[in-house]
Write a protein that binds this DNA or RNA. Structure first.
Lengths: 130, 130
DNA sequence: ACTATAGTTCGCAACTTATGAACTATAGAA
DNA sequence: TTCTATAGTTCATAAGTTGCGAACTATAGT
């Protein structure tokens, strides 16, 4: 019987800008991180969670959380059978002031724009139909 | 004889946060972009340029510039035999205010830290030797 | 011990990236 | 105009990365 490898959390000095940008350059991962950072610092990773209108397989979600963790964005700990993930925003804010807020803000702007575009498209479709 | 495909520049609405983060999640590309944005908005892409203490093959450099261009970070135009690349920072600042400055600032902090660490290592080595 | 639930690991197919070799594009000289 | 040099692009391919189903580990509550 094989043992599971322990969770890896880089120390704050080992966190890189490239690592952060790469981790957040995936739409699913920014969405997860935005939720985590917004609500504010506690969330649970469950299987086939609805992230950005899409059902994600649990193995994929698990990999995404690993990516966030190993980039230093998130701290994960077991709470019984579940996983407890918290944003490491305070630490990162100290090392790279303003970086995460700027990314989250930009992400917010983009989501709002997309929502607006979708709404417009639906309205147009309804006009055409009616 | 084949013709070369024209340079692609996304329009400002088509630029995504994910695209920007992905483009800048590569150490060579942030280094290039930081130079471009810092000096301020003009630079030339030449073969085997020294970027961050490393000689990059020209085909690779060309792909990196393409990545920056197609993410919307850079505008490229031919100037005779050379390429003229300018940062699209103004446009992006309008769409995602504060995003690029925050990334460049974080990149600066990290570079400074790395330089400091390197210097310390050298000093230690000299002490050991002398 | 048995069952249910939550998440991880493995293996592989699909995708991406780096790079040398061959090519295109332009400028300037002969 | 043809020749040569320079700057950059494209192509092929090898190496690396990612997404996901199936099988597994870990924990809690019977």
């Amino acid at each position: 019987m094989k043992i599971m490898r322990p969770l890896i959390h880089p120390s704050i000095e080992d966190i890189t800008v490239e690592g952060i940008l790469h981790a957040l350059s995936d739409p699913v991962r920014v969405a997860i991180y935005a939720q985590l950072a917004g609500a504010p610092c506690t969330n649970i990773c469950s299987n086939f969670q609805q992230i950005s209108d899409r059902s994600i397989p649990k193995s994929t979600l698990s990999q995404h959380f690993r990516a966030l963790r190993e980039a230093g964005l998130v701290r994960s700990e077991r709470r019984g059978v579940e996983m407890h993930n918290t944003s490491r925003c305070m630490e990162i804010e100290q090392r790279f002031p303003g970086l995460l807020p700027a990314i989250l803000k930009a992400h917010g702007i983009q989501s709002a724009d997309q929502a607006r575009a979708t709404r417009r498209k639906q309205t147009t479709a309804r006009k055409r139909a009616g």
